[in-house]
């Protein structure tokens, strides 16, 4: 039993597995900030019930801060997808023989590229659909004083700083 537990905790001796061992730790450190920060913004400062298309558009196309949120989200997606699928690969490797490992490694790395590509595309290629935002504006929480809501926020004619 001790032998098994020792083996599990052992650091890979080199090459690709050692590189991924270090990647998991350093990307994990970055993800503590990126992913927990993202959760805090979306679920504590905001609320899933007020997040809609207009919210996303205000966040990503804000004139001064938009690029920061796009950079944040692209970094988050890239690191999280590699970290997650590499974790899945490591779990699968424990159950598979050499042939199965080649298949599992190929599938997880293919999915990694697909999800980074798709996620990166939606973040970087996003362009706001102004007509849709006019019809479906921001949902401002009613705890905000009505007078404090800029009219532009309600008819969707201008970008405002959402809480993000």
């Amino acid at each position: 039993m001790a032998e098994r537990s020792m083996r599990r905790r052992m650091k890979p001796s080199g090459g690709y597995e050692l590189f991924m061992w270090f990647f998991m730790r350093y990307s994990g450190l970055a993800l503590v900030f990126l992913a927990v920060g993202h959760l805090f913004i979306m679920h504590i400062l905001n609320n899933v019930e007020t997040i809609n298309y207009a919210f996303v558009a205000n966040r990503w196309t804000a004139p001064r801060t938009g690029w920061i949120w796009r950079l944040w989200d692209v970094s988050l997606i890239s690191l999280a997808v590699i970290h997650g699928f590499n974790g899945l690969r490591q779990v699968l490797y424990e159950y598979l023989s050499a042939g199965g490992r080649i298949i599992a490694g190929t599938i997880t790395w293919t999915l990694t590229l697909i999800f980074i590509g798709g996620g990166g595309y939606s973040i970087l290629m996003f362009q706001a659909d102004e007509k849709f935002i006019k019809d479906h504006p921001l949902k401002i929480e009613r705890t905000v004083e009505p007078a404090a809501i800029p009219p532009a926020a309600l008819d969707g004619s201008a970008r405002i700083d959402v809480r993000c």
């Binding site: 298309y53 558009a57 798709g118 996620g119 595309y121 939606s122 996003f126 479906h136």
Partner: peptide, 11 residues
Amino acid sequence: ITDTFFVVFAP
């Protein structure tokens, strides 16, 4: 990632 992909083609 899949549901957020909708923002680019189907608001």
